[in-house]
Simulated scan of single mutants.
Amino acid sequence: MGYDIERFVGYVNEGLLCCICRDVLEDPLQAPCEHAFCTACIHGWLVHHNNCPEDRQALDMSVLRHLYRYMKNDLNRLQLHCKNGERGCEMVCSLESIDRHERECEYSQIPCSNAGCPVQIERRNLDSHLAVCEYRSRECPNGCGYTILRAEDTQHNCVAELRTELELLRSEMICRVEEAKHEMESRLDSQRRHMVQKESLLQNEIEELKSQMSRMMSEVRSLMAAERQHRQELEQAELEKRELMELLKGLQKDCRLNNTEGNKKSTNFRPLTRLESVKRKPREVTVI
């Protein structure tokens, strides 16, 4: 539904009226045929119809659009009275700002803020109503700290209220303890499962390390055996080397002795001269 045309000051252009409710457009939409409607009005119309209510041309929700800018500006500039004028509000403002004013208007009817109170009262009279409202609450004057409603004044019993509060606190504490207990048990179970898994992994790692250590010890023993064998071979080679050196020294000594004796024997012989060698040659006999 649109804004009641009787609230407006001065003349309102026919193009700014809803084609269905004939009031001033509220949250308007426009059809391709340029007829305008309040959003609520045209939605309700299209539930039962599929045409424009003004010229009966085919129409559905998908083709509706917002007003042209110039029409929107003309609509926003219209002046109208506050809807609380019958209660005494004399405010006149533009359509663009009327909603903001009416939300804050001192003559607007609002509900009492006390829980359970059914009274609707003008905003300007709210404070005076709260002072006498039978649903207003206050703290117990006897010092128990309990907040009571005015209607409960004669029925309020500090001891009973405190006992009730204590029972509520005890129940709440028991629930919290149970929740904490369940949570701790859940955490302990989770940690226990984690520890078991960790222990299994560590056990596997230990077994793997033992296996690796066994292989390493076997390799070390093999290396030590090979080293001993190599040392023995080196010692044997060194022994053979010494024996060969001793044999070589003996051979060199024998060679020197043989050379010395050979030199002595060669001094007892004088080499033949050329003349003597010629003389000793037999003469050749010529046969005639």
Rank of each mutant, 00 (worst) to 15 (best):
E134D: 15
R138H: 15
L244K: 10
S128E: 15
E227Q: 14
L59R: 03
N50Q: 10
K72Q: 14
C117Q: 06
N125K: 14
G145V: 01
P28V: 02
V119R: 03
R274C: 08
G10S: 07
A31V: 03
C105Q: 05
A115V: 10
D254G: 03
M1G: 08
Y3L: 05
T286A: 03
L46T: 09
F8R: 01
H81N: 11
A31R: 04
E235H: 08
S128I: 10
A40D: 07
D55S: 06
I148L: 08
Y3M: 02
D27F: 05
N76G: 03
R163I: 09
L166K: 15
S97T: 15
N125Q: 14
L59N: 06
R123V: 02
M213P: 01
N51K: 05
L166V: 02
K198Y: 05
R170G: 00
L78K: 04
C89K: 00
C112A: 03
L201Y: 09
M217P: 04
R187Q: 14
E207L: 11
V132R: 06
N125I: 07
N84C: 08
R256T: 07
R69E: 11
E172Q: 15
E96P: 01
L80M: 15
R187W: 08
L78R: 01
E219W: 08
L239H: 07
H48Q: 10
A131C: 06
V287I: 14
M224P: 00
L169T: 08
I288T: 12
K279C: 12
A131V: 11
A226T: 11
D60R: 07
Q120K: 13
A151Q: 12
C18H: 00
L202D: 08
R283I: 09
H66Y: 06
R283D: 10
Q212A: 11
L169R: 15
R176V: 06
R228S: 13
C133L: 05
E167Q: 15
M245Q: 14
M217E: 14
M224A: 14
L169C: 09
R215M: 11
Q197C: 08
M71C: 03
R103L: 10
G143I: 04
N50F: 01
C52S: 01
G44I: 10
R170Q: 12
S171N: 13
V119T: 13
V159T: 04
S277Q: 13
R215S: 13
